[in-house]
Amino acid sequence: MFFTSDEFLTVAAALNTGFIKTLQLFFVTLIGALPLGLIISFGSMSRFTPLRFITKLMVWIIRGTPLILQIIIIYYVPGLMKLFTWGGGETGRFTAVSAAFIINYAFYFSEIYRGGIQGVPVGQQEAGEVLGMTDSQIFFKIKLLQMIKRIVPPMSNEVITLVKDTSLARVIALQEVIWMGESFMKGNQGYAGLIWPLFFTAVYYLAFSGIVTVLLGMLEKKLEYFR
């Protein structure tokens, strides 16, 4: 039985380790990019023109260039310019790649937030005002939930993309699940020339994106009670 063979168990254990690294990158990115994106969205809606201009310029640059290029630049350029290094080894790579992912995703999220915030009709703000509510009451009691409802579907798309984008960390040899899968082609723990481990990583991505899809779908359902 293949699934109980030594080969399978060794590979699965390695892939599990790699996938934990993938998950770490996934959650670190979300924790960093979700709040940072909100701050950036305020910049892109600012009434102060230079701030709005710079934010829009950054959105263009970050969204207009490949994430893989951003990872390479963030990892190598500080060292090449003798500014600082991310530190050697796996920790350094993880820090650098996390920075790249957080920045990239924060700019994408900021545009989604902006759409959600601007999508709430101005009449909601005015209705709250004439009822004597404070601005913070209007934001938290009236607008926030309507914004969340608006951003959940586009956010779900981005989050599912993020599940798979984590594999781009492979480019600076972060030992995530794709890197692990490949390692059995080159030679790892006495196994070499194995192709199936790389293909098998798809199972991890499918399982995880499936869970994420179901959870976000439940959140979307929960907000369906109003329109």
């Binding site: 009709p121 009449g123 909601q124 005015e126 209705a127 005002e129 004439v130 009822l131 004597g132 509510m133 404070t134 009236i142 939930l145 309507q146 409802k149 009670y225 109003f226 329109r227």
Partner: peptide
């Protein structure tokens, strides 16, 4: 202004009810 507003009530052309309530 917030308190002064309470002297007046306003019914909007487009209702502007809060959809989640």
């Amino acid at each position: 202004i917030r308190k002064k507003r309470l002297h007046f009530g306003l019914v909007f052309q487009s209702f502007n009810l809060f959809p989640q309530y």
